[in-house]
Design a protein around this nucleic acid. Structure first.
Lengths: 199, 199, 199, 199
DNA sequence: AATGAATGAGTGTTCATTCAT
DNA sequence: TATGAATGAACACTCATTCAT
């Protein structure tokens, strides 16, 4: 008798997610070329072939991992935040606290930031996903926030986009630290904010 | 004539340096696993075998590249700077201007910072060279500078080492930008300084 | 009730035959190495595992397919034909008409001829079944028929076995055409007969 | 010092031809799916990697083998033959003798006929090369020859194209025998001619 | 009995390294 | 010394087979 279709689908979904989650960390830490399917599968605790039941190739797995990134969600929050009738300084505080919290609590978040920023950096066309577009939009909203702050004299001078890029660059930097180093000192929310705040 | 021998040695040295310089950029951009000897040699404009005339293996080549980094020189300057009878703020300005200047003018500098910081990040034992120790020492001197500034009320609160790490992390970040992106906006000296300066 | 047991057996037999029939065509068209169990099962409309309920392995399935070939029956007819008190020319006509009719009407027949002749050609020891022996005997009877014709001056000169081999070779050839090409022109009975008939 | 460019090119060409020639027989005997690169390279007496120095993939190697077939040359002869002011029967004799001679003397010819006819049979779009087009043209010229013979009352009745297809089908058949069986009886030129000659 | 996800031995392919020239 | 064709170990990927359901 066949397994119940729903249960079967459920199991498939579970395994797919397991592979994606574990691979995310592996790829973020070792890069695409540095990640071997054999190591990866051993690390996940499955056979090499199983990966190919769920993904067509190492490349496709990588692409799916990039899609994982829920920048869409962060972008939504960012939009809402932008529209709030509060000072840019307060908005920045809310944003920074959220980001630092996730960075501390969720290693996968660090991995996603790391991978996506890497893609953005390398402008690797092959993997330029929808996510990198979201990311760009995220930068644009951050720039707007900063420009509001500049009018309120609480943010540093200079191009809003440059400062937004700087801000998220530092988030990327500490995502790398989170991923690679076991013992490190995380910067404070204030440290992060100084990238864009007026002295 | 003895001159031919010297000349020969000279030519060898030249070729060795060419390989090192070109490989530095290649490794910095593509990582160790992502760098193929075939691509590398084509990029340099020599045969694959030639690399093995000068270096025992891909690994040795990589190790030699890491040794290139003249952190020793920067460290010396740093020590001198520390001992100058001027304010921490002024010292920081001198340091930051030097660093940003080199970052702008010398792509190889960016590559060296990128590679070495990567090694530090990954704490990759296999490649922990003398340079990473220099780098650590560099961080320590920077920490001292910051602590002087904290006493002078010009630097931000927090562990000096954490802030030094932050400062050089941002330098690493913009080394990556220099390496990977063709069009990007470099941060200003003031932007860099804000990582550690009091608001 | 005992009937359920019989019915069960019946169902098993049906499924087994379905697999054999469909696989026969698949193997004949794609060869042993070119046939994937995954494709085969999809083509039959069952799960991969189901094949292994009925057959121990891909090899066993293939061997069972070869056994399907009812050369025994054709051999019997051939023997009867040989003993008839008619001219070799008439015997040949009866044989050729029978063969061409089956070739036209029954794709499975074409597949069986193709597979068995392939086995004979390749003298693949691994699969030399009882059937290839029947086939050899079939050739011998055909040779006798031709030799009768040579005495009657209606068949071409040359070794009877060679001509028999030629005759059945052409049958094999048009089995291939039947299997592989959608639009093709079948040769006539006369065309086939000319392989062995005197001009 | 670099090897002389010409000599180098020469060596490359030699190796490429060795691989092609040896692979031709291997593919003709075992089919595409049945040919393993490991076996193939062992058979040629080179490392597996060497094949990939000369060909991008197993598929490309296969395609290049199909291109080898010098049907073009045979086609040229065929055209010349068609235009000769002699009887179709004589033309057929010249053609048949040429073909049978090559079949006996050159195993590679047998392999090429086998592979190309297989491609034509399977109408495998993936590998339909220029050669299969030549082959079709070859069939057309043969059909013309046969039609001349029909006017001269020396060739059998029926569609010229069907008979040409029959004629070359038999050539394919004996190419297979040449390839697969060690001891077999080759048909005579007369046997081959009977496929199309009037009784 | 039937399923199809999971397996891993076996394939095709890549790439650091060697070596004859 | 410089070359680049040749190598084979290591990698990505396939597919016959198994097994829990």
């Amino acid at each position: 008798m066949p397994k119940s279709k729903e249960r079967c689908q459920e199991i498939r979904e579970e395994m797919r997610n397991t592979i994606l989650q574990k691979s995310l960390l592996y790829f973020a830490r070792n890069g695409f070329a540095g990640t071997k399917i054999s190591d990866l599968s051993r690390n996940i605790g499955i056979a090499q072939g199983t990966i190919y039941v769920y993904f067509e190739s190492k490349e496709e797995l990588f692409r799916e991992i990039l899609k994982l990134t829920n920048y869409g969600q962060m972008l939504k929050r960012m939009k809402r935040l932008t529209n709030l009738p509060i000072s840019a300084a307060k908005k920045l505080r809310i944003l920074s606290e959220t980001v630092m919290k996730r960075l501390k609590e969720d290693e996968s978040f660090a991995a996603m930031v790391a991978l996506n920023t890497q893609m953005l950096l390398e402008k690797n066309q092959a993997y330029s996903s929808e996510e990198t577009i979201y990311q760009t939009e995220l930068y644009e909203y951050t720039a707007k926030l900063i420009e509001q702050g500049q009018r309120e004299k609480t943010m540093a001078e200079g191009s809003g986009m440059k400062l937004a890029d700087y801000y998220w660059g530092v988030v990327y930097l500490y995502s790398l630290k989170r991923l690679f180093t076991t013992e490190y000192e995380m910067i404070s929310v204030e440290d992060l904010e100084r990238t864009v705040r007026k002295g």
